[in-house]
Amino acid sequence: MKYSTLPLVAGLSFIATGAIADTLTVYTYDGFNSDWGPGPQIEANFEAECGCDLEFVGAGDGAAVLSRLRLEGDNTDADIVLGLDTNLTAAAAETGLFAASGVSGEYDLPIDWTDETFVPFDWGYFAFVAGKDVAAPANFRELADSDLSIVIQDPRSSTPGLGLVMWIEAAYGDDAASIWADLADNIVTVTPGWSEAYGLFLEGEADAVLSYTTSPAYHLIAEEDDTKTSWTFDEGHYMQVEVAGKIAGTDVPELADQFMAFIATEGFQSVIPLTNWMYPVVTPAEGLPAGFETLSTPETALLFSAEDAAAKAPLAIDAWRNALAQ
C-alpha cells in the first residue's frame, strides 16, 4: 500500500499556518479526512480549481460533527459540513445554521433526491457482510430462525447501528419489535461503533457483521481477498446517503457555493469508491472501479425521509432496546 509522505515537520506544528488565499473550512468525520480517506485527493482536486485553501477539520463520526456544530452555534468556523446522513439531517436543519444549497442535479441514486438544503455526495446499502462459505439467509425472518450469529452496532452511539434499526422499522413497521425479539439469540454482541464490530467479525467472533454492500469491495480490491460477500435480503435494504450542507453564516459564500457545485463533479466523485468504499452519487466517466461489479445489488431500496427518520428513531430505538434487554 502506498502512502503520500507528509513532511514530518508539517505534522508536528501545533499551530495552523496562516494562509494568504481564502480558506474554505469543511467539517467532516475523521475517516473522510484520514490520509487513506477521500479528503487529501479531493482537497488537491478542488484547490487546483479554486485557487483557495481547502481545510478539512475531522471531528469524530457524523453524529460528533453535528454535535460540535451545535456546540459552536453561530460562532462556528465551518463553511461547509460534510458527512451527515439522512438520519441526522432533520436535526441539522433544525439548528437553522444551514443555508439552501442552491445545487440541483441528476444523481445516480435509487431514490429521488428532493432536499434543498443538503447535497448527497455518496451512498451505500446497509447489509450483513459474511464469508462466502456461510449459507446466506434470504431475509430477517430466515436470519432470526437460523443459528447464524451476527455482530451489530448500538443505534445510540453508531450511525450504522441506527441504520439497522431504521432498516427493520422500514421493512416491518409494527412487526419490528417481534423481529428484534427473534433476532436476539442471533446477536453475539452489540458494539459502540462500526470498527469494533467489524474487528470482531474479522476475528471470527460472528458469522456476519452489519456493514455495507460495498465492504467486500475493500477486501477484494485492496487485499485481493474474494472470500467476503454481503447477504441480499428480499425485503429490501436501507440506504445510507451521506450529505453536505452549506453554513448560512459562512464568510466565503462564493467559495462555499463553488464547493457545493464541485461535489457532483468528477474531481470529487471519482475519488469516493476506492477511498470511502461507498457508491458515488454521480458515476464517474470511466465507470466504477473493477471489482465493484461483483457486489450484490439489492432490488429494493428503503429510506425514510429526513422528517420520518427523525420522528421514528426514538421509538424504534426503544423497541430495539426493550426487545434485546429481555
Binding site: S67, R70, V190, T191, P192, L324, A325
Partner: peptide
Amino acid sequence: AVALILGGGPKATTVELAIYQAIRFDF
C-alpha cells in the same frame, strides 16, 4: 466500550453510554 462490547447488548448499558447518547445523538 468494554461493557458494551462484552456485555452482549443493551442489558449492559452503562451510565457512560447513556451520556454518550445524550450528547451525540439526542443533544
